[in-house]
C-alpha cells in the first residue's frame, strides 16, 4: 500500500495547484505579477532527494504527461522537463549533503530552471512574446517566492513521508 503513497500525494498536489490559481486572491496582492504554483514539481524533486532517483524520474514522466494533456494541450514540454529537472537535482545532490535547508534551496533552483526552460520553449513556439527581463520580474521572482513559502510549510512532512517510503521499500 505504502508504495502508492507518493502517487496519492502527487494527485493531491496536482489538484492543489489548480485550486491555488483559482482561489488565490490575485488582484489584491500582485498588481500584474504572476504567481505560478509548482507544488507538484517540488513534491517530485523532494521524492528524488529523499526517495530514489528512479522513482523521481518515473513519477516526473507520468505526471508531466498528465499535466501536458490536462492543462496545456501541448504534449511534450512538461513530459520532458519534469524528469530532466529530477535528473539534474539527483546529480546535484551527489555533490551536496542532504540536509533540509540545502534540499529546499536545491528544489527552488530546480523550479527556477524549469520556469526558465519552459519560458524558452514557449518563446520558441510563439506561445508567448514576453521579453526575458519582463519574464524575470513578472513571473520568475514572484513564482520563486510563493514556492519558497510552500516549501517552508511542507518540506518537513513530505521529507518524513518519503523517507518512510524508501525505508519500507529497501
Amino acid at each position: 500500500m505504502i508504495r502508492f503513497l507518493p502517487f496519492a500525494i502527487f494527485i493531491l498536489l496536482f489538484i492543489l495547484e489548480s485550486l491555488f490559481v483559482e482561489l488565490f486572491p490575485v488582484r489584491f496582492l500582485t498588481d500584474g505579477h504572476i504567481l505560478v504554483p509548482r507544488f507538484l514539481l517540488a513534491g517530485i524533486l523532494l521524492l528524488t532527494i529523499y526517495g530514489t532517483k528512479k522513482q523521481g524520474i518515473w513519477y516526473g514522466l507520468l505526471f508531466g504527461l498528465t499535466f501536458d494533456i490536462v492543462y496545456t494541450e501541448v504534449i511534450g514540454i512538461y513530459l520532458f522537463m519534469f524528469p530532466l529537472t529530477a535528473y539534474f537535482v539527483s546529480k546535484l545532490m551527489k555533490i551536496l549533503q542532504t540536509n533540509i535547508i540545502i534540499s529546499t534551496l536545491v528544489v527552488l533552483l530546480g523550479i527556477a530552471v524549469l520556469e526558465v526552460l519552459v519560458y524558452e520553449m514557449n518563446y520558441l513556439i510563439h506561445i508567448t512574446g514576453m521579453p526575458f527581463l519582463q519574464f524575470v520580474n513578472l513571473r520568475l521572482l514572484p513564482t520563486l517566492i510563493i514556492n519558497f513559502i510552500f516549501l517552508i510549510i511542507f518540506v518537513y512532512p513530505l521529507k518524513k513521508q518519503f523517507e518512510k517510503i524508501s525505508e519500507q521499500i529497501a
Binding site: E22, I34, V36, F67, Y71, T72, V118, I127
Partner: peptide, 15 residues
C-alpha cells in the same frame, strides 16, 4: 461550472 484552471500561466485555460 469551473472545475480546474491551468496552474502554469502561459496558456490561460480553464476546464
Amino acid at each position: 461550472s469551473v472545475v480546474a484552471r491551468n496552474p502554469d500561466r502561459w496558456h490561460e485555460m480553464i476546464i
